[in-house]
């Protein structure tokens, strides 16, 4: 994973896509994966606007969504808009996510494709 692209992992044995990385493929128990760059856009499966935000988040409300890529793999993350709806198309953008016990966490968030 780098800040250039959102990468999932493809099982070399059965082709299943997983995200984030795991030790064993949950379909075939294979252990070898190759990088599988996710396409430029995903689709919102469901979302929430969180008003009771946890420590280390500044944004109120925090929009969170489960996003489907290629109909094959899902990614959970923040959406940078309150205007999101189910089925909307979003693209990953790198940036600050939150602090966990004071430690800065960076990663992919999602912006709406208009």
């Amino acid at each position: 994973m780098s800040e250039n692209r959102l990468v999932a992992y493809k099982c070399k044995k059965c082709g299943a896509i997983v995200y984030p990385k795991r030790f064993l493929c949950s379909s075939c128990r294979g252990r070898d994966f190759e990088e599988y760059p996710l396409g430029g856009e995903g689709k919102v499966l469901t979302y929430t606007k969180l008003w009771a935000i946890p420590e280390g988040i500044e944004q109120l409300p925090l929009t969170l969504a489960i996003i489907e890529f290629d109909g094959k793999v899902r990614v959970t993350g923040q959406v940078l808009s309150e205007e999101v709806k189910t089925g909307d198309r979003v693209r990953p953008v790198w940036g600050h996510i939150r602090k966990v016990r004071g430690k800065e966490i960076q990663g992919f968030r999602f912006e709406l494709i208009s």
Binding site: Y19, P20, L45, T46, Y47, T48, K49, L50, A52, I53, P54, G56, I57, L62, L64, A65, I66, V75, T76, G77, Q78, T86, I97, R98, V100, I105, G107
Partner: peptide, 22 residues
């Protein structure tokens, strides 16, 4: 996959609820 993005238990319940409503 979840916690670092700010996911809490109420947020998961919110997303499940929306799936159910729709």
């Amino acid at each position: 996959a979840e916690y670092v993005h700010g996911v809490t238990l109420p947020s998961l319940a919110g997303m499940l609820t929306r799936l159910y409503m729709e």
